[in-house]
Simulated assay, not measured.
Amino acid sequence: MVKHADRVKKGIRNPHRAAEFVTNRLGIWASSRGYLGTHVLEREWDVLVLLDTCRVDALRQVAPEYDFLDNIGRLRSVGATSSEWIGATFDQAWADELQNTAYLACNGYADFILECGGDPERFIGPAPPAYFEQGDWNFARAADLGRLEHIWRYEHGDDESQLGHDEGHAPPRFVTDRAIAVGREFDFERLILHYSQPHSPYVANAIEENRELYDYEREPFDYLESGGDRKRVLEAYLDDLRYVLDEIALLLDNIDGEVVISADHGESFGEYGVYGHPAGSLHPQIRNVPWAKTSAIDTGDYTPKFDPEHTSERDVDETLRALGYAE
């Protein structure tokens, strides 16, 4: 009761935040019922590349640097967070399509939704977000998919597998390697690749310079809300976008099919007073995601280095903390 009263008082003092709170809760419910956005399985593609938090304008800004990025359209996402997107996309209503779909995921909530069925009692990790209780979800299960791999589990193996930053999340090479291997070994109709980048923390420059993360790279939205330099944060974000796009270039030379480069959701850097990607948000920079088509031909020039049988598993709690989902 006290917490509820506190929220009411805060809402009276800040009606904009109160309206946002109500709207976001409605957005969560609408996402869970499939009322928002375009479901990706409605579109034609063989390989769907998801760049976590990638904005439409960001991909358009760096597009001239990459031959495979041209005529970048946009799509209205079914979620404002990765977990919303996973829950709304992997819905039992799409079970027939999912049977011949492989999903290689870097987000720990793929475990919560697809392995645990949204049951917090079965989830070995931090408490799932309360907003899952505010929707009317119809989660598919891992068995409904042709294949499901939790890529973040491979991150901490032997010393040779350390391609990232200790404070970051699964480096893109893990996804690229597994995508190439799965594409060559199996014949799924659809392959969904869920990269972590350019989601914060922004590690690309720290890796290149062999240093610890700066505050604006580690916690960019805390930094911005404290009056930090927006341009500095955006440059770090774009460099992490380049970090993952360099991997996509490798992928496209070693896989076959019609490819779409998109995102699960976007990101807000203070537009309309919103930072990050709050659950249920209808913010245009969060809900609108890129939709860029290209083609890929496997030249066979690259041999994947990482194999699930030869890597130890990372803890789900650890990967969710790296993504900012747990304290």
Rank of each mutant, 00 (worst) to 15 (best):
F306Y: 15
E121Y: 07
S268D: 00
R122P: 04
A236C: 00
K293A: 09
Y66S: 00
P129L: 06
R7D: 13
C116Y: 09
K9Q: 10
R218N: 04
G108M: 08
L245N: 00
L36T: 07
D315A: 14
N24W: 08
I192S: 04
V316T: 15
G168W: 06
Q61C: 01
A19T: 14
S268V: 01
V78D: 04
G324R: 04
R190Q: 12
L69P: 00
R13E: 15
R232Q: 10
E258F: 04
T38M: 06
V274T: 14
P198G: 03
P304A: 12
D222C: 07
G37H: 02
S82H: 03
S196H: 14
A105V: 10
I248H: 02
I12A: 11
Q61W: 03
S226L: 10
G164W: 03
S32C: 11
R33G: 05
R218Y: 10
N107V: 11
H156K: 12
R55I: 01
G227T: 08
N288Q: 11
R153M: 15
T311P: 04
Q285H: 11
D70M: 06
H169Q: 07
F90V: 09
E267I: 02
L26P: 03
G168H: 06
A292G: 10
A58Y: 01
D46I: 09
N100E: 14
A130L: 14
G11M: 12
T101R: 10
I151W: 05
E121K: 14
P15N: 11
D307H: 15
W152L: 04
S83R: 11
T23D: 10
V233S: 02
G280S: 07
C106L: 08
G276F: 00
E209A: 15
H310M: 13
A181H: 14
Q197S: 05
E225Y: 05
C116D: 09
L26C: 09
G108V: 09
R17Q: 12
V49P: 01
T294K: 08
I261L: 00
G27L: 08
W85S: 09
A93S: 14
L191G: 13
Y275N: 05
P171Y: 14
C54F: 01
V62C: 00
R17Y: 08
Y214N: 11
L213T: 06
I255W: 02
R242D: 00
E84N: 08
E44S: 13
W152N: 07
E84M: 12
R178F: 06
